[in-house]
Design a protein around this nucleic acid. Sequence first.
DNA 1: CTCGGTTGTCTAGCGGTGCTAGGATCACGT
DNA 2: ACGTGATCCTAGCACCGCTAGACAACCGAG
Lengths: 192, 192
Amino acid sequence: MSVQERKERERAHRERLILATARELAEQQGWDAVTTRRLAERIEYSQPVLYSHFRGKREIIGAVALEGAAEMAAAVRTAASAADGPRARVTALARAYLDYAARNPAVYDAMFQLDGGLAFAKADTPEPLKDAFAALLESLGEVAGDGVHPALFTEVFWAALHGLATLTRVGRLPPEDTEARVELLVDRLAVL
Amino acid sequence: MSVQERKERERAHRERLILATARELAEQQGWDAVTTRRLAERIEYSQPVLYSHFRGKREIIGAVALEGAAEMAAAVRTAASAADGPRARVTALARAYLDYAARNPAVYDAMFQLDGGLAFAKADTPEPLKDAFAALLESLGEVAGDGVHPALFTEVFWAALHGLATLTRVGRLPPEDTEARVELLVDRLAVL
DNA sequence: CTCGGTTGTCTAGCGGTGCTAGGATCACGT
DNA sequence: ACGTGATCCTAGCACCGCTAGACAACCGAG
């Protein structure tokens, strides 16, 4: 069965190559530039090969989005765990979130702006997405305040971060004041 | 010169027809369904006519976005002016904002999700966009709190609303708890 | 070692997209 | 009545996501 195993390894390797290439291309030139033809050319295979790994372009975007969700969850947890006290934790979380979005705009787009064919707020929500929300909940739940459901508070805080990230990204909010906005958000929303 | 005037009237009328049709089609079947061919067919003209009014599809989306910004500014002002006291005003504003986004998802997409080729946070920002922000500022400025710049506060509050609107729209936040989220947001962010 | 069959890949093409060049047609002013 | 200029349409370009069908390369059995 060694032959089969080798083939599976190669196949998995190529799948990672596809995703890495798609992501790289998207970060460099935007998702519009990620066409199946260009992507195929970059990985030095023909177009149909892509379809033996993914159902279509949507699924490629979705796969990149899941990667991003896992990375972001890790980034948020790392930042939060390195901070002392609830206030520092929440601030670090917010900064880490916005920082990730700013540094990986294409991945963030894949997660929230584009249609990656992913389900949400349902039973069949992919694990990385649920875990990313859980990562936020871990630090935000403790500052929800009395009588406020931690999940509801997390949703609102998350929505605020998402709004800041997207509006900043499209140039509607000047990037200079990001730090001031984060402080205002944490000061007001969190019950410390 | 009456002939020329009549032609200009007809031309303006046709331009409104294009925008109304694009918007209707987008609300019915999403922006993906708004192709130049379908749009041309619906207005009963050939494709190139569209290009005598707009540079391309982007500009059509942009024009719909500007319409939407004006409408939303009006909706927000109406809601705010009908409320007594700062707290009721801010709550009404938030509800009006989210309500407009929920009732006109395609227009909201044109404003914030799609590339309508519009400039922001710059000198050449179109008037309706600046005015929509001004409409928010009018009611939100008075609850910014001491030592907080009204514009900065408005940006943060707006971002939170935008986040709630978009995350709800794509199914990431369950719509049932919208009211609870609005109350939490107003309670915490606004200084009453 | 040969050979049948499976597995994998590519070429070619379909219907659709946004956009445009060039010709026909119509309505106007003289 | 007629030349002229504006207006509109037909036809086509290059590109898109996606797929059918031909072809080659490899595997295991005899």
